[in-house]
């Protein structure tokens, strides 16, 4: 049981860590897809199949595509895909801050006594999720819908070229 979890965790963390260190952005994005797939595997392990499929659809399917498009749209030449190495000072300070957060979090988790919950995996059917979404959380669902619409329109507006300074955009 735990062995499966450890394998999933190691694969996910490994892929994410390598993705964050690579120079080639395309490779980073591809490794992150593996990492997200790992997270989806964790959801499956935990018995939340619906969330796992949502994760696959949204992250592995959609977000990864948006990322790849962003990578391809923001380069000027083929060589531009590899980013220049970052300054050592920034990296070191990043590692210190990140390591401190990690230490504190793990320390807190280990130090906190936690009630061990039910051993059988709680089951949740798609029907239950549907009933909850349409019943208890109907208002939230509507708001999320509005949010997504606004985000979509906003993304288009932000990314679309300015009408006024066309001369600057067209090469």
């Amino acid at each position: 049981m735990n062995a499966v979890l450890i394998v999933i965790a190691l694969v996910t963390l490994g892929a994410a860590a390598v993705a964050m260190t690579l120079r080639n952005l395309i490779h980073s994005a591809l490794l992150l897809i593996a990492s997200w797939a790992g997270v989806a595997a964790f959801y499956l392990w935990a018995g939340a199949e619906f969330v796992a499929f949502a994760e696959i659809l949204v992250y592995v399917g959609a977000v990864s595509m948006v990322v790849l498009f962003a990578v391809l749209l923001t380069r000027r030449s083929r060589a531009d895909l590899t980013v220049t190495p970052d300054s050592a000072g920034r990296a070191i300070s990043g590692f210190i801050a990140g390591g401190a957060v990690c230490g504190v979090l793990v320390g807190a988790i280990v130090a906190t006594p936690m009630g061990v919950g039910s051993s059988p995996t709680p089951t949740v059917t798609v029907k239950q999720i549907g009933v909850q979404l349409m019943g208890t959380h109907a208002a939230s669902l509507l708001i999320v819908g509005v949010l997504l619409t606004v985000a979509l329109l906003g993304a288009i507006v932000i990314a679309s070229a300015d009408r006024t300074d066309d001369s600057e955009d067209t090469p």
């Binding site: 965790a9 996910t12 963390l13 994410a16 860590a17 964050m20 997270v39 990043g94 590692f95 801050a97 990140g98 390591g99 957060v101 990690c102 979090l105 793990v106 988790i109």
Partner: peptide, 9 residues
Amino acid sequence: SALFCVGLV
């Protein structure tokens, strides 16, 4: 937490 910190770093 580890995944969070990988992202943070």
